[in-house]
């Protein structure tokens, strides 16, 4: 039983790694369709990864060892997060290894090194990207913390496994106003953290409007592959959090194969739905000016604060 748990952990990581490019590709495909284009197929990102792993790396002569280890740290920290996020089964065997705060800070670890790597070659764009990325990350942080608080308030824990099981046990919580507000707040943060419109345009070619892309302009080959993969993984993680923490239905609470199968399907469906929402949103909205982003995040903070307050009042 214990071993099954650990096997499932590893299986979940592999599943996440496999799903992540597909999710990104799906969003892109859907966006293309919404732009009345045919677009690349959803599995296009897999090809891109494969291509990038096959290419050489060209590194700036100004860059240092930090530039070379950063992709591994980013990738490793993101995978570590997937060890903690219940995707198909809750609680996970390693649930006690970390809680939501750990998740957030592990992701921040990745962002931290990505920003440093952006500064390392000494280009203006890298610095610009790093500066903006850290600004957005910092301002998004309070909302995340409050959303966590809100969840903890209703579930009585910040460990993800317990939040999920608690909610499954008490479904009334799911549709409470606090929960919904927290969901919206976290959704906005997801847009910011994963570099989606209206905060950042993942498809831009224009350096001056970039955030995430600007930092990785110097990366190539396998390093770029790792970073891209990690960022898709991050998207998947946020989607999983949004879906499994707020709408935990379908997730397995036992290691029963049938339940697990249902859970995988449920997960894919939920990710697809969220991907669809993102695609719709990205089609609908224009990119905000950088200095309007704090207003958006401020709004999400207020939503999260309301979420916590209403949860508290209703408790």
């Amino acid at each position: 039983m214990v071993i099954t748990g650990y096997v499932l952990e590893i299986a979940q990581v592999i599943l996440a790694l496999l799903l992540a490019p597909g999710l990104a590709g799906f969003v892109r495909w859907l966006k293309a369709r919404l732009q009345n284009r045919r677009g690349a197929p959803p599995w296009q990102p897999y090809f891109e990864l494969r291509k990038l792993f096959g290419k050489e790396v060209v590194m700036s002569n100004n860059a240092s060892w930090l530039f070379r280890i950063a992709p591994y740290i980013i990738f490793a920290s993101t995978i570590t997060v997937t060890l903690l996020v219940p995707m198909i089964v809750a609680p996970l065997a390693l649930d006690g290894m970390g809680d939501l705060l750990m998740v957030v800070y592990l992701l921040l670890l990745g962002t931290f090194f990505l920003a440093l790597a952006g500064l390392d070659p000494g280009t203006a764009f890298g610095g610009m990207g790093a500066s903006r990325e850290m600004t957005v990350a910092a301002i998004a942080e309070p909302t995340i913390a409050l959303a966590i608080f809100g969840l903890a308030l209703s579930a009585g824990s910040t460990n993800l496994g317990r939040i999920v099981t608690q909610e499954l046990a008490n479904t009334a919580v799911t549709l409470s106003p606090g929960h919904i507000l927290a969901f919206v707040a976290l959704f906005i943060v997801t847009l910011a953290e994963t570099g989606r419109l209206p905060v950042d345009n993942p498809a831009t070619h224009l350096e001056l409007t970039m955030i995430h892309e600007a930092m990785i302009l110097e990366y190539s080959g396998r390093y770029l592959a790792l970073i891209e993969w990690a960022s898709w993984l991050k998207l998947t993680i946020f989607f999983t959090l949004l879906s499994n923490l707020f709408v935990p239905w379908g997730i397995a609470t036992t290691f029963d194969p049938a339940a697990l199968a249902v859970a995988v399907i449920a997960l894919i469906v939920k990710l697809a739905v969220l991907g669809g929402i993102i695609a719709v949103v990205e089609t609908r909205v224009a990119k905000l000016r950088l200095f309007r982003v704090p207003e958006l995040l401020g709004a999400s903070f207020v939503l999260a604060l309301l979420a916590v307050t209403s949860s508290f009042v209703l408790k």
């Binding site: 930090l66 921040l108 962002t111 000494g122 790093a130 990350a137 910092a138 309070p142 604060l305």
Partner: peptide, 24 residues
Amino acid sequence: GMLALTSGLAAACFVKAFGISFLA
């Protein structure tokens, strides 16, 4: 919320401190 903002800003600040001083 403020504590979280603080730690986020601290990370930003140390990206700056380390990045500007030691890198590039």
